[in-house]
Design a binder for these strands. Structure first.
Lengths: 160, 160
DNA sequence: GTAAAATGCTTAGCACGCTAAGTAATAGCT
DNA sequence: AGCTATTACTTAGCGTGCTAAGCATTTTAC
């Protein structure tokens, strides 16, 4: 897969990813700010619903593609807002199971339509095929990064 | 551009953007850590070189797609590392012009090859055409976000 | 020419990602 | 069964993005 070095120099793909992420989050934040919901909060609620509303913190963090440690703050906020509850798992006392409260479910119903509308607006002019292609290419990059990180990790542990 | 609502619900594009950005940054951080260079630092140096090494902080921030305020910390660090210098612009005393020092230029020469190698590795399996297509689609999303933000901004200032 | 608006920088403090280190519970090995 | 490694969570603190507010300078409008 030979590439033109000069073109590669002018790329700023990673910055573009970061920028799009921040911009997108910003739009949704503005949209949902009347409901006291920030981006990490509503995505957690949203994902929780889609996962079946009865999963451990670890499973939820994986689905959200963030670290468990990063999720803790958000879950704490949602809990004190009365949107979710956390209770110890019976089978595995280490794990804490997260569930939506009635309030949380109710809120989700209210925002669902808005979220979808925003997605449609922000993806205007892009076909589903182009979208899947976008995801495909991004997944390749993700895989490459993981491969690379594994190598880098190995090269440091080798020194021990 | 009609879209399948159910498919849209399962998307997590913004999260993917964020994840890729963090992962990519992480790889480069590990690669360049022996040189005391973090991601924002070397990208600033890199972009500065490409802009001609004699630009205001504002121009640099724009090129890096971040806010001037965010750039300040990084420039401060680079300055105290002796990589760049900032001096008042003669024509406009408000502006501060950023230039690479000899040390900075020297360092850039050293890392240039590494940066390109990493890009090639992380983009393995993706053709230049696919890459341009990726950028094209991402730009559309960026434009849509900007349009949307403009509308949202207007709708709040209208209330004043 | 001066008052008002805009611009460029700076500082201060927030948001949300991360890693590192610690604890309790579980799983695996002999 | 008991020792060790692993797992799930938690806490603490960092990094890098942001907005808000303030200052000095420049530009614009009258």
């Amino acid at each position: 897969m030979p590439k033109d070095i000069e073109q590669l120099k002018e790329l700023s793909l990673a910055e573009d990813f970061g920028r799009l992420y921040r911009m997108w989050r910003n739009v949704v934040d503005v949209e949902l700010s009347p409901l006291e919901l920030t981006y990490p909060r509503w995505t957690a609620l949203w994902k929780l619903l889609r996962l079946g509303d009865n999963v451990s913190q670890k499973v939820l963090a994986n689905a959200l593609e963030i670290e468990v440690a990063s999720l803790m703050r958000t879950l704490g906020q949602l809990e004190s807002q009365g949107m979710i509850e956390r209770h110890a798992c019976r089978k595995d006392k280490r794990a804490r199971i997260v569930t939506l409260t009635k309030t949380g479910k109710h809120l989700l119903k209210k925002i669902e339509a808005r979220i979808i509308e925003v997605r449609i607006e922000l993806l205007d002019g892009i076909s589903m095929d182009e979208l899947f292609e976008l995801e495909r290419v991004m997944n390749i990059i993700g895989d490459n990064v993981n491969k690379k990180l594994k190598v880098l990790d190995k090269s440091t542990t080798d020194l021990i």
